[in-house]
Write a protein that binds this DNA or RNA. Structure first.
Lengths: 210, 210, 210, 210
DNA sequence: TATGAATGAGCGTTCATTCAT
DNA sequence: GATGAATGAACGCTCATTCAT
């Protein structure tokens, strides 16, 4: 699909500017949340005029929604890449946990914002940013479920629960540990190679067929 | 101490009014979040004048903090009761999951608010409501850890991970399933007796010593 | 006029209570001004209920007006006494300056409030407290003028200006020095016996070298 | 430096608008005092939106402080000019009294406000507007004192008191007469050429008949 | 009669959004 | 197209005053 790339110089310039705005907004929203950041601040930080922001986004919520979906995309791309790098089901899960851990640690503040919007209550956005992100997350969980399903078929995993439920469980355990680590002052040490492994152990001890 | 209960009629009246305000505020905050509810709305809904709200609470944040801590108390009391009703480790965990599930389903909207403040990013409250609630949660997880520890000692559980990690994992799996159910239109059927059991199974399959 | 004194116990009690309120209010108003003191604070300080204040005074302004007129009375009584203690014109003026100085130094904060209401702009009081106090002050200046007049007749003073103008001038010089001293950290030393004398000297000694 | 005058059209426009706001505020504050004027009223009167006021001033106090200092500047400039127009000490003092009288009569209401802030009690302004204005006034009095000092050296004046005290006295006599005139319905006649002269006479002629 | 809980108008201030330039 | 000055609705909060007890 080369057609998608055929942007005029003008269009490329606009996209670049839009990204600059989103970058500035990301920092500010992460630091202080949706409500405590003003359009003027985003304008100042991105070095555009306030009116210019409204050329790119309909309103503050549109800017925020775009930002969150973009970040969500980035994360899901990384996660999808992680589970597609190998054919081995166990390695796929290892890669998932490893990548999710990295994303958490590298984007701690954004992750909190992200959870406030999805797990937590999203009151910022009138029209369903939360739903969009949750649907995307659900689809990703289904991909994880496929890994379990395939692993069960191959006899790598015991059939202890429905694959989708296993996906939910794995994701939930990950989140639980990662949030626990986020609050831990020594969180960096958890990112040493191999340490995240033990998240899997809890699930695998009962799951793996030996 | 029966003396503590000896409130004058006036004091009882004040407490009742305070609860009425908190009730009204609970509904509104659950519906729209901290920032999108005005003191005037709380006043209108609770049928008091705006000024009266400030007789009971120093400011809007004080009202919110009081509300959240009160609800947090209620939940933790129920959970503590649940794990103290029996001496059997497996039953304790069952009761925990059962009670946590009930709380989730009965207070869905509040739970979202609660997560926005703790797991998610809390920008509403200047002085650490989030920390207070997280500390409380951590302490509760330590109680769950004790159950695992004691179960491991008795040989009921395999020693597959540190007790506190097991507590984090169990709590994380619960949250994951419960949020999944919250989004499910058929969520009520999950509350039928016994259904929540399979949350435990995922952990127990690898954990239980057979 | 013994009739005025025939107050019942009830009436005497009420007067005493009114004074207690005024005393409390005096301290607060001196410290923070009319606008920055609330009726609740006056109630707390005087140990009455807020509603009780409204039994004694129609509103906050009435309380303030009563207070200021009462203080104004006190000052004018002291000043009138001062100029009536002797028949000698020069001693009358000395006593006036001496007494006015004492009043300033002993009631510095109140004096400022008083000036804000009379010389300065009085926006606190809807209906002419300032006028009432200014009229009273004018009448007092006329008494001072009589002293100059009488002194001129007796040949004690040169007839350099109308007596009322001399009164204005003397009062103005006093105020100027007293305010200057109020701002001076060593103000207390000015109250040593005799020091105030030199306020008079400026008026008494001719300045121009002929 | 002509460069200082090189303001862009935009900057000149802004200055003009700021002055319009200050003009409107001056009228209102003079009429009703700081506390009894709302930002909405200033906005209405100056024909700007409330928000616009906050582009020019940080808050209500900033607006007030700016206004008072600006007026204070204007007065002190006029007074300094008056005492620098001639080298003759007596003429300097004449010019001072003449100019001060004119300022009083032309800005009667503002003068009251000004006195409420300096002589009277200033509770409006958190951070020392009163001190700033008083310091400025003190410095001006020192300039007047220099005139007396120089006049004494030249033998024009008798050395009847310290020069600074003479300055205080002259200023005080002026204020006393001017306030007296302010209250007089025929005040305008006092401004006829030469009439203010007799303020000086009181100081200049020796009073006591020896 | 004295109380103090309750009231609600009114304030200072903010900030998303618009639109003339 | 880009700008940023101008807007004004809406907020959190205060406090003089009232009135049921």
């Amino acid at each position: 699909m080369t057609g998608e790339k055929k942007l005029t110089r003008r269009e490329r310039e606009k996209l670049r500017q839009k990204e600059e705005i989103l970058d500035a907004a990301l920092d500010l929203f992460c630091e202080r949340g949706f409500q405590n950041v003003s359009m003027l601040e985003i304008a100042k930080k991105s070095e555009f005029a306030v009116g210019t922001l409204y050329k790119f986004f309909n309103d503050k919520e549109d800017l925020y929604r775009t930002l969150m979906l973009e970040q969500s995309n980035k994360f899901h791309e990384a996660l999808n890449k992680a589970i597609n790098e190998t054919d081995n089901e166990i390695d796929k899960l290892k890669n998932f946990v490893k990548t999710k851990s990295r994303i958490f640690m590298e984007n701690a503040k954004l992750i909190r914002l992200y959870f406030a919007e999805t797990k937590g209550a999203s009151y910022n956005i009138k029209a369903g940013l939360d739903k969009e992100i949750r649907d995307r997350h659900k689809k990703f969980l289904e991909r994880i479920a496929k890994i379990f399903e395939s692993g069960i078929k191959k006899g790598i995993f015991k059939n202890i629960a429905e694959p989708y439920h296993l996906a939910i469980a794995l994701d939930g355990i990950c989140n639980a540990f990662l949030f626990s680590w986020l609050e831990n002052p020594e969180k960096n040490k958890f990112m040493e190679e191999g340490n995240y492994q033990f998240i899997l152990n809890i699930l695998f001890k009962g799951l793996i067929n030996e």
